[in-house]
Simulated scan of single mutants.
Amino acid sequence: MTACRACPRLVVWRETVAVEKRAAFRTETYWGKPVPGFGPMDASLLIVGLAPAAHGANRTGRMFTGDPSGDFLYRALYEVGMASQPTSVSRDDGMELYGVRMASPVRCAPPENKPTPLERDTCSSFLREEISLMPRLRSVMVLGAFGWKAVLPLLGPERPKFGHGVEAVVGGLRVFGCYHVSPHNTYTGRLTQEMLQNVLKRAAGSA
């Protein structure tokens, strides 16, 4: 998976960012490849996001690591007892997840954080395989409408509408909708820690 070059636009972007870098990270070696899922494969809960951030997971090589979105999510996971520490800054910072795994429907950082439907569909086989390899999976928590549209076809024929706090059964799994943890939502208060933790607790409790 980490050697995939199926989407030319994404390949060019992820590798360009890894060379040009952000000034704050100019001394770091960027990952610059597709980002694999993170967390135990025997987890009962899967969190599905959107795509790696250009200077977050595309830099660190680990999902939701090294950017504001990850900071917000890991804090919530820690508060509900599903992460070993409240912050995640690098692949070797000792972070462990308990009973939860994280993945994204698009594995490469997209320009402006906006993957196309074609890129989503091209990448879907990786998420499908990941789901099939999780023997204890009972629930899926999806961050944002893009991820929702990507995940549902992989689970079953049901098509419930996305919304924050929505709960449905799709293909025998409990599926929960949650606003994405992007700064656009968290800085404006559209998504608060309390809101995120409430959905996490429900999703974990159903597992």
Score class of each variant (00 low, 15 high):
4 C>M: 10
4 C>F: 09
5 R>I: 08
5 R>N: 12
9 R>C: 05
10 L>F: 14
12 V>P: 02
12 V>N: 14
13 W>P: 01
14 R>D: 10
15 E>F: 10
16 T>Q: 12
17 V>M: 14
18 A>H: 05
22 R>C: 09
22 R>Y: 07
27 T>R: 10
28 E>P: 00
35 V>T: 01
35 V>E: 02
36 P>V: 00
38 F>D: 04
39 G>L: 04
41 M>V: 15
43 A>Q: 04
46 L>I: 01
48 V>Q: 13
48 V>P: 14
50 L>I: 15
53 A>H: 03
53 A>C: 04
53 A>Y: 01
55 H>S: 04
56 G>R: 00
58 N>M: 01
58 N>S: 04
60 T>F: 00
60 T>A: 00
60 T>Y: 01
61 G>Q: 03
63 M>E: 04
66 G>L: 02
67 D>P: 02
67 D>N: 12
67 D>W: 10
68 P>C: 08
72 F>R: 15
74 Y>F: 15
74 Y>V: 08
77 L>P: 04
79 E>G: 14
81 G>N: 07
83 A>G: 06
84 S>I: 06
84 S>E: 15
86 P>Q: 14
90 S>Y: 01
90 S>V: 03
91 R>Q: 06
93 D>Y: 04
93 D>N: 04
94 G>A: 11
96 E>F: 01
100 V>K: 03
102 M>F: 12
104 S>T: 12
105 P>C: 11
105 P>K: 09
106 V>T: 09
107 R>F: 06
108 C>G: 07
110 P>K: 06
110 P>L: 09
111 P>C: 06
113 N>E: 06
114 K>H: 09
114 K>S: 10
116 T>L: 14
117 P>E: 04
120 R>G: 04
122 T>E: 15
126 F>E: 15
126 F>V: 09
126 F>R: 07
127 L>N: 05
128 R>H: 14
128 R>Q: 13
128 R>C: 06
129 E>T: 13
129 E>I: 05
131 I>Q: 03
133 L>R: 13
134 M>I: 12
137 L>G: 07
137 L>M: 06
138 R>Y: 01
140 V>A: 06
143 L>M: 15
148 W>P: 12
148 W>E: 11
149 K>S: 12
150 A>N: 10
151 V>D: 10
153 P>A: 07
153 P>K: 09
153 P>I: 15
154 L>I: 11
154 L>E: 03
159 R>V: 11
162 F>Y: 15
167 E>R: 06
171 G>I: 04
173 L>S: 03
173 L>I: 09
174 R>A: 08
175 V>A: 13
177 G>L: 11
177 G>E: 13
178 C>M: 10
179 Y>F: 14
181 V>W: 03
183 P>S: 08
184 H>C: 02
189 G>F: 00
190 R>D: 00
191 L>T: 05
192 T>D: 11
192 T>H: 13
195 M>C: 10
196 L>V: 08
199 V>G: 08
200 L>T: 01
200 L>W: 05
201 K>L: 12
203 A>M: 02
204 A>L: 03
206 S>M: 00
206 S>G: 01
207 A>M: 03
